[in-house]
């Protein structure tokens, strides 16, 4: 009985040693996150069109293009987001022709689309 208890305690100790965080894993995860966040993107990941260079250069200062590519907004909503980013996220306010070029590009290439929340049907190509 006592031997069994000791053995059990040994197993528990071993288990807790396994559970103790591998400090190296924490470091590797932080570095992996930074690596993913810092992964180079090419401008061509965005739809071709007038204003693409400006959009790519200006927007990717703070976030990568996934945020653009997943979006499907009307011109008015895109325009509203420019103010929101300036007010809430410290973006340099966009004004005048430059703002128009950016919003035009986004509205033209990332406008509303008809898709269900899960995209197309999984059984169709």
């Amino acid at each position: 009985m006592r031997g069994a208890l000791l053995a059990a305690a040994g197993v528990l100790l071993a288990a807790s040693a396994v559970l103790a965080q591998d400090p190296d894993l924490a470091r590797r995860q932080a570095e992996a996150a930074a690596a993913i966040a810092g992964r180079a993107e090419e401008e061509t990941v965005l739809a071709e069109g007038e204003g693409r260079s400006e959009v790519f250069a200006y927007c990717t200062v703070c976030h990568n293009t996934a945020l653009i590519r997943r979006s499907a907004f009307t011109r008015d909503r895109w325009d509203e987001l420019m103010d929101w980013m300036a007010e809430k996220h410290g973006m340099n306010p966009l004004e005048g022709e430059f703002r128009q070029a950016i919003v035009d590009y986004l509205a033209t290439h990332y406008g509303p689309r008809q898709r269900g929340p899960r995209g197309g049907n999984p059984f169709l190509d």
Partner: peptide
């Protein structure tokens, strides 16, 4: 980040163990 986004540098690229890329 700007440099990175435009292909300048990739922080941690050299230390990055294989298999960590998406």
């Amino acid at each position: 980040a700007m440099g990175t986004a435009l292909g300048g540098t990739i922080p941690f690229a050299r230390q990055m163990p294989a298999g960590l890329l998406p």
